[in-house]
Design a protein around this nucleic acid. Structure first.
Lengths: 135, 135
DNA sequence: CTGGATCCGACATGATACTG
DNA sequence: CAGTATCATGTCGGATCCAG
């Protein structure tokens, strides 16, 4: 990880990654790999969605968490928020160009999960089975 | 999302994803996109690392969380745990073939973050600046 | 060295009520 | 409709101690 944020402690690991806590890359990873952020970004593909539409699409998200998540994504320049000065208010969210590049990556993560969910389920079952016999 | 886990409620969204809470894909996403899991998988690239080595590489992780994370990854069939019956104990962790496929995807997420960290930092600064003026 | 078990506090999140 | 504010809570995760 090329980490702009932390001083050089020396002793780089063989993969050139900075796994230190104050590393900016790690902080951003926590943000974009967040449970709700992931879903919002994956949903907003070239669509503009209203607040309520997003809320309806993402089952289980509370109003508060949707608000918080959208604010963070907006702050990070990944999502564009557009307020239409009408009544009742109409606010639309869409990916910025930067957000679009992240969308691709996150999509591949979702795709990986879709493609391998059965293997994972099988691995879990096998593990639990071994576990049960062991105990 | 092709979701093996939940019944069909009808009304699929235009992108064919299942964003319901009981969706298996969402549960797996939460797991693999977890803060610590991400780092462990990203670090274990064709290397076998011992528990203590991992702990040293991942700054800020507690013993407990490393143990918990590794157990989850092992259960999901992403990480192989090898115990050498020596004293003191020697336990090594490495990616399974399945874990290797995930490694690639996660690496691309890390790479994205590395490449765009400056844009994000700039976006944050701009947002905070606007915020400060607004208030 | 590699954990398991326990305790406990902090923070993230949910629920609810209210507002422009 | 799209939030904000407040309060309640429960989970995550750190610290610590112990064991094989």
């Amino acid at each position: 990880m090329n980490c702009a944020n932390s001083v050089d402690y020396g002793d780089p690991d063989p993969f050139q990654w900075d796994t230190r806590e104050d590393c900016q890359v790690r902080q951003i990873l926590d943000r974009v790999a967040d449970k709700w952020s992931l879903l919002v970004i994956a949903l907003l593909d070239s669509r503009r969605l209203r607040f309520t539409e997003l809320r309806r699409e993402i089952d289980g998200i509370s109003q508060r968490m949707l608000t918080v998540t959208l604010r963070q994504l907006e702050r990070d320049g990944l999502v564009q928020r557009t307020v239409h000065p009408v009544v009742p208010p109409r606010v639309e969210y869409e990916l910025t160009p930067l957000g679009g590049t992240l969308h691709t990556t996150i999509r591949s993560l979702v795709t990986w999960t879709e493609e391998h969910q059965n293997e994972i389920a099988a691995a879990r079952a096998a593990y639990d089975e071994r576990e049960a016999r062991g105990v």
